[in-house]
């Protein structure tokens, strides 16, 4: 903490990723999926990572949460979260660190929830795994979390199939918030949802973030959505982070040709008054 106080110009970032490399082992040898990726994420910031399928964006997210498993190996670099050397964590310490410091929301809420357990039972599992055993406390905290994401607490005794896709994703977000993590990694959290539901959910996440002050690493292929929701955007291509900046700068003055290509691939809802971008694309 003293370091933070000494460095008054700018507080240390919450997350510091340096030269991260992740390789996949295959019969043909090592395939580099993430190539010397470096970035920082501040407290209470939303950072977006965009890219096509296979660009390595999810692999980065999984490595940061230490959720990668063979044949994926972290072969270089460092990840520091709030002073903790993430890559050095192991065993019980790692298990406790996960969810308490970093939680993860994945695309398919259908698969993230156990269809055979009530929502309450799944919250109980989560709290027990992190040393909270008092039944009354668990019930109270679960109810509060549900209220937070706009679901009536009396639905705790329902099974996941009784909820709509959007509500299931709300449940997963409630679980991700359960232990008050500093960072929530969201990997395509709304890709399977309708646009209206997506917007409702992300507006709610924005409000929660303002209230609770967590940071978000937001992975998506939807650049337009990212430009609305994130404070900064990073573009990934073939395992490399090719460009990063605030949405406005990334939209109006992208440096990397690939970033421009991605923007041009989005048909604008309201065509700009300037000449169409697709024409500009062909000019040298």
């Amino acid at each position: 903490m003293t370091v933070v106080q000494m460095n008054q110009a700018k507080p240390l970032p919450l997350l510091n990723v340096r030269d991260l490399c992740v390789d996949y082992a295959s019969r043909a040898g090592l395939k580099r999926a993430v190539d010397r990726v470096s970035f920082t994420l501040d407290a209470n910031e939303v950072l977006g990572l965009a890219g096509e399928s296979g660009s390595g964006k999810s692999t980065v997210a999984f490595a940061i949460a230490r959720l990668h498993h063979p044949p994926a190996f972290i072969t270089g670099g460092s990840v520091t979260l709030d002073g903790t050397d993430v890559l050095a964590l192991k065993g019980e310490t790692l298990r406790q660190w996960r969810w308490r410091d970093v939680s993860v929301v994945l695309q398919s809420a259908m698969n993230a929830l156990n269809p055979l357990l009530t929502v309450q039972a799944q919250f109980t599992d989560l709290f027990k795994a992190h040393g909270i055993r008092n039944k009354a406390e668990i019930r109270e905290r679960s109810a509060e979390l549900l209220r937070m994401v706009g679901i009536e607490p009396d639905r705790l005794l329902d099974y996941p199939h009784r909820f709509s896709g959007g509500m299931r994703q709300r449940l997963v977000i409630a679980m991700a918030l359960a232990l008050g993590p500093k960072l929530i990694i969201m990997d395509e959290p709304t890709t399977a949802l309708d646009v209206v539901v997506q917007r409702e959910l992300l507006e709610e996440v924005t409000a929660l973030r303002q209230r609770l002050g967590f940071s978000i690493l937001f992975i998506t292929h939807d650049l337009a959505l990212m430009s609305q929701f994130c404070d900064r955007i990073g573009i990934m291509l073939n395992g490399e982070l090719v460009e990063m900046g605030p949405p406005l700068q990334m939209v109006e003055a992208p440096m990397h040709p690939y970033t421009r290509k991605l923007w041009n691939a989005i048909p604008p809802l309201h065509p700009p008054r300037m000449p169409p971008r697709r024409v500009l694309e062909n000019t040298p």
Partner: peptide, 13 residues
Amino acid sequence: LLAAVPEIGRPFG
């Protein structure tokens, strides 16, 4: 539907 469609340059809120 149109209000919810992600669009560049129209931040949340």
